[in-house]
Design a protein around this nucleic acid. Sequence first.
DNA 1: CTGGATGCCTGGGAGC
DNA 2: TGCTCCCAGGCATCCA
Length: 289
Amino acid sequence: VPELPEVETLRRSLEPVLVGQTVDSVRVLRRDVVVAPGDPPGGASRQRAPFTPAPLTPELLLDRAAIERLERRGKQLALVAADGRSVIVHLGMTGALLHTHEPRPRRHPPHTHIVWRLAGGSALRFVDPRRFGLVRAAPDGHANLWRSLGPDALSLRATELRTRAARTRRAVKAALLDQSFVAGVGNIYADEALFAAGIHPARPADTLVREETNRLACAIRRVLRDAIARGGSTIRDYRDASGAPGSYQSRHQVYGRAGDPCRRCRTPLTGTRLAQRATVFCSVCQRST
DNA sequence: CTGGATGCCTGGGAGC
DNA sequence: TGCTCCCAGGCATCCA
C-alpha cells in the first residue's frame, strides 16, 4: 500500500534515471487509467454515467519532454518537464512505476498500462493490477491540482496539526486518512503513528490537548522518516523503480498484528474497524481519554 | 457545509 | 486439489 514513505522511496529511486532524460515516445495500453483535461476529475473507472473520453495526445503524457524534476506531495508524484508540462502519478493500491533497460520486450508484464520510452534506451512502465491508480495529465503544470492537498506529513508542524485538529470532531484516525487534512498518511502509517504517540485512534480530533498534538506531529514525522530510511513497507505489491521491495514492514508495531502481543506491554493488540478501515491499536498504550 | 457510506478492481488466502 | 467467498483500501462521488 503505497503511502508517503513508499512514494518518496520511489521518487528517490527514479530521480537519477529520469531527471535530464528526454521522452522518446509514449504508449498508452489502457486509456482509462489516464485522466486528461476534459475528462471527469475522478477518471473513467470511478465514473458511473457514460461519457466520451477527451482526446488523448502523446504530448499530454510528456511525449518529447525533457524531464526536469520529480516532486512529491503526500502520496502523489509529479514528473515535471522543462517546458512546464506535468504528469501526476497516484499509485493507488497496487500501482508501480518500473524502470527497465528492456524498452521493447516481446510483451510487457501483465497490467502494464503506460510505457514511456526514454532517449537513453530505457523505459518507464506504469503497472497497476487493481487499477486504483491514476495518471493525470497536467499540460499547464500541477500546482492547481495540488492545492486541495493538506500539508505534507513528512514536515508536518505541531501548530499546523493542532489548528486543523481543533476544527473537526471526527475520529483522529479518520482525519489523518483525509488527504486534505494532512497529505501522505494512509492506513498503515496512521495506525503506526497513533501507537507511537500513545493516542487512541477513535479520539475525536478536537479533544486532543496541545501535548497530544505535539506528540502526534512528532510521531508522524518520525515514523515516516524511519520508514523512508528502510525503503518503505512492502506488504505485497509495493516496489521502487528498480523493483526492490521495502523492509519497514518488519518494524510495524501494530499494523497487521491484531491479536499479537503489544511490543511495548505484551497486551494482545485490538483489531477493529474505524472509518471503514481495518484498525489495530493497543488498548493499554493508547488510552481513549 | 460536514462527514459517513459506497463502488471501483484483482490476487491471494481461508475454508470447505 | 479445486472451487467459492471475502478481504485488502485510496479516492472520488453520492447522500443524509
